[in-house]
Amino acid sequence: MPENSGFSEKDVQREVSDLEGRSATAARIFDLRRIIGGLFVLYGIIVTIAGVTDSQAAIDKAQGVNINLWTGIGMLLLGVFFLVWMKLRPATPPQQDGPAEERPPS
């Protein structure tokens, strides 16, 4: 077990290389695209519905633009983009295999 307290360049490189070898982030972290995609699809649906059902007062406030509708559609498209991207280019498994552990649930 190396000490985490070296002061020289060699100490730091040895420490960090060793920690990189045991790191679990690459193998276990979830795919962020799923979260962004999911949240924006949900927001998109909510805001689009708000736009469809908006009163005239809301539209007048927004300079005559149905801003909820347009923003909702935009957010929906962004969400779908992330989900499609994830589908087409799934996260590559870590190249330098650390200790073989269970894969993240996908």
Partner: peptide
């Protein structure tokens, strides 16, 4: 809710101090 969810879901990726402080240099 999503912010907290990310915290809980990222927790299992922390094994070493490098994971905790620098995401294991792997993003």
């Amino acid at each position: 809710v999503v912010v907290l969810g990310i915290g809980f879901a990222a927790r299992r990726s922390v094994r070493t101090s490098l994971d905790f402080f620098l995401s294991g240099r792997s993003l």
